[in-house]
Amino acid sequence: MTSLLPVLAAALLLAVATVLGLVWRRGQGRINAATGNRLTVTAVELADEAGLHPQLGTEATLLQFSTEFCSRCPGTRRLLSSLTQASSDYPERQAVAHIDVDLTNRPDLARRFNILQTPTTLILDRDGVVTMRIGGAPHRGDVVETLRTILKGNNVSYNL
């Protein structure tokens, strides 16, 4: 019986790790409607040390939270920045903006938005209200669908 213990323990470890991995993978990229308290993001709170702040999109904003130690943040950055739209109404503004915040120097934001993993993406409406939240690398289709819904509600049309 004792000779079986190492093999059983190894099999158990493998099984536990596999279940953990499957559970984690199922939650990755899942998009959820914001629940609980209505959170509003302002451009000013995203300002860097120099006081420069990005501008929110006039119709919607893709707000990404990253750190330097994040294997999937660069890919997410590329995906979300490919979905930005220049505003047809306001020169030098974006209708759909992408803002990437490095949490290393902004732990206050990590707490305020309860960021538990990177990347985490919040989709904001034209008023900066958080409408959707995506933990992990987002799926392009989910983001496009949410943006289309927001743009439709705003009665504007952009080719996404």
């Binding site: 596999t18 984690w24 294997s71 990590a110 993993q117």
Partner: peptide
């Protein structure tokens, strides 16, 4: 197997 990055999580 899954591409999970524990170091990334711990850093956050």
């Amino acid at each position: 197997v899954f591409g999970y990055c524990l170091g990334c999580q711990l850093y956050l």
